[in-house]
Simulated scan of single mutants.
Amino acid sequence: MRRVGIVLFDPVRVFEYAVAFEVWGVDRTDRGVPPFEVRVCGPGRAGVRLGAGVVCVPDHDLDGLADCDLVVVPGNEHRTAPRREEFPEDVLAVLRAAHARGATIASLCSGAFVLAAAGLLDGRRATAHWMDTEELARRHPEVAVDANVLFVGDGSIWTSAGSAAGIDLCLHLVRLDHGAAAAAEIARTMVTAPFRSGGQAQFIDNPVPAAPADPGDALDRLRGRVLDDLGHPWTVTELAALAGMSERSFARHFVRGTGTSPLQWLCTQRVLAAQRLLEIGDLSIAAIARHCGFGSPLTLRQHFTRRLGVAPRDYRAGFRGVGPARHG
């Protein structure tokens, strides 16, 4: 995914446009991130209102999307997205054409309404900002709307929840195509975590784990400690004691803060750590299993395959050929 097209037409939310451009439009090749060509495309290259008095003039018309590997549709400026008949037909047509030729298509926030209007979400899982999901389901009953996820992919079509979840999706798409190192480097320069727990809920299991958000919070400190020593045989009893809580209170606060149980979170973090080591390291499968707390290659393979649908050895073989972003 090297050529990225961002579709703009009135009125687009400035934040979602800025997110897409920040992820793919900033040259970070000096930091080991592969180069991207970003094309900002709009009908007739007419100026587009981005809200707050900001106007953007696309550098391509819609024909610029013809050979893009990824097409991104930012959210609409208004919280309630326009009705179907208000979307430009030439925009819908170019999205259908991009999908037909195999491009990856991603919407941010209420951009899901545009994909639905183009018929690209029919029979697929999709999401949008939690304030918009009921309306999306009402207007498009053929779409399997999931209000509990930060982002979701179905085939080559991706949708994300509101605003900040667009960052999660964009980084995830980089990660899928170029590996954890590239996504982590972009996140680092943006001063954001490569992966956020919580949000609308956690669905995608394989972004890079986040650093603790607030070192002053007991659970954040605890999660940071666990991430620093995933090979330790952590138990809920031990974790609750370290947090200074009863097991019942600890579990309740943990679920509230992360959207998942302590043991499910721990297993997810171990799989994520194994993914990163498989992508950028030379440790044996047995060593990775011990380092990440699985103990044996068999246990690693069971959890890894159940969550990702591919065995560790096959995953390593696939990601070792991804690209040049494996420097650090």
Rank of each mutant, 00 (worst) to 15 (best):
F294P: 01
L95N: 14
V91Q: 13
G119S: 08
A52D: 12
L283H: 00
D30W: 10
D59F: 06
L283V: 02
E135I: 10
D69R: 03
L121I: 00
R301A: 12
R31Y: 14
A182R: 09
P262Y: 07
G323K: 04
A240L: 05
P215W: 08
Q264V: 09
D168M: 02
S246T: 13
A251K: 08
A180T: 05
L173W: 00
T29N: 12
F87L: 12
D282V: 00
L283K: 02
V7A: 09
A52M: 13
P262D: 10
L8V: 13
L242S: 06
R101A: 03
V55K: 11
G281H: 00
G44H: 03
I6L: 14
V14L: 11
P297K: 01
T133Y: 11
D168T: 05
L176Y: 05
E238T: 10
A240I: 01
G259S: 03
D132G: 14
R316L: 11
G111S: 04
E85T: 12
G198S: 06
W158P: 09
R138K: 12
F21K: 12
S110E: 03
L283W: 01
E279C: 02
V94G: 07
R139Q: 13
P212E: 10
G328M: 10
C170G: 08
R221E: 08
E134S: 15
V23K: 00
P215G: 12
A117R: 02
R31E: 13
A116T: 09
L173H: 01
M1T: 10
